[in-house]
Amino acid sequence: MRYLKALTATLLCATAPVFAQSTESPWLLHVGIHVVDPASHTGHLAGMPASVDKSTRPTVSIEYKLDPAWSIEALAAVPFEHDVRLSGQRAVRVKQLPPVIGVNYRFLSGEHVSPFVGVGVNYTKFFDAKGRGILEGADTHLESSWGIAWHAGVDITLDPRWSFTVDARYIDIDSTVSVAGATVGTAHIDPWVYGMSVGYRF
């Protein structure tokens, strides 16, 4: 994370003089709702096919525009909650936080409708894992994950301050799962994260 912080600070310092001469603020706040929709099959755990249920939660992101086309964005959310299933039966209930820091590029900056693409780094923290159903009462644990997050969407400008965004991310999330201290496999969660948000330039 240190190199990401250093890169962000360098970019902000380098572009500060440009925005100092502009009356348009480079800061945008997005508030919305997103779905974390894991891959249909997330591998095998303890020899059984595993799957992870989807979850929907409010999200918030802060974006800094380096110029009309390029921006840096940090995404956060209320903790998502998922059921992990083994052979279709509920086995684990777990919460996770998947913050993302990334760079976006807008193809038609300044237009009423502007599609964009981006790429970033994701860190997913799993916590409060509890055995359920066939693993009721078992001590379960999911390791945290680092991975790439691809981003794409469309911005719709409503007025100089307000905007509406529809977007999707594909995030590489792999987590080693253990039960009673013994590793039972790796969950290849790799979700699509899609939703919408309202943006405010401040």
Rank of each mutant, 00 (worst) to 15 (best):
A69I: 00
A129S: 15
V84S: 04
G47C: 06
D37P: 08
S114A: 14
F80T: 02
V78P: 00
G147I: 09
D174V: 00
G47M: 02
P79S: 05
L66H: 06
V78A: 14
V60T: 04
V117I: 15
K54N: 05
E73I: 10
T15I: 03
A187P: 00
A187S: 14
P58V: 06
T15Y: 03
Y64G: 05
F164G: 10
H141S: 14
A74D: 11
H34Q: 13
E24S: 10
S55Y: 07
W146E: 05
T140Q: 06
V100K: 09
R201S: 06
H44I: 00
L12Q: 09
P49E: 05
K5S: 12
N122G: 12
I189C: 05
D37T: 01
H41E: 15
E143N: 14
V35Q: 14
Y200I: 12
T124I: 08
V94W: 03
A149E: 15
D172L: 01
L66Q: 03
G153C: 06
F80A: 13
G88Y: 05
S51L: 03
R201W: 01
L12P: 15
A129W: 01
H188A: 04
A16S: 09
H141E: 15
G47L: 02
L11Q: 13
I148P: 12
P58C: 04
P49F: 04
V31K: 00
F202C: 04
V103C: 08
P38I: 14
L29E: 00
V117Q: 07
Y200C: 10
R2K: 12
L12M: 14
V179N: 04
K5P: 05
V78W: 10
V184N: 10
H141K: 15
W150M: 12
P115E: 09
S71F: 04
S144R: 04
V35G: 09
L4G: 07
T59F: 06
S55M: 06
P26T: 02
V100Q: 08
A152N: 05
L108S: 09
F126G: 09
A138P: 01
G181Q: 05
L4R: 02
P17S: 00
R93S: 13
G32W: 02
D159G: 11
R201C: 09
Y123L: 08
H151F: 08
T186W: 03
G118V: 11
R2L: 04
D128M: 01
V121K: 01
A77P: 06
G199S: 10
G118E: 05
G131N: 10
H82W: 03
M48N: 08
T176Q: 14
L135A: 06
P38T: 13
W192K: 06
M48A: 14
I171C: 07
A168Y: 10
H34Y: 15
D128E: 14
A180L: 09
W162L: 12
I134L: 14
L142A: 09
F107G: 10
L97G: 01
A50W: 02
V94H: 06
I72C: 05
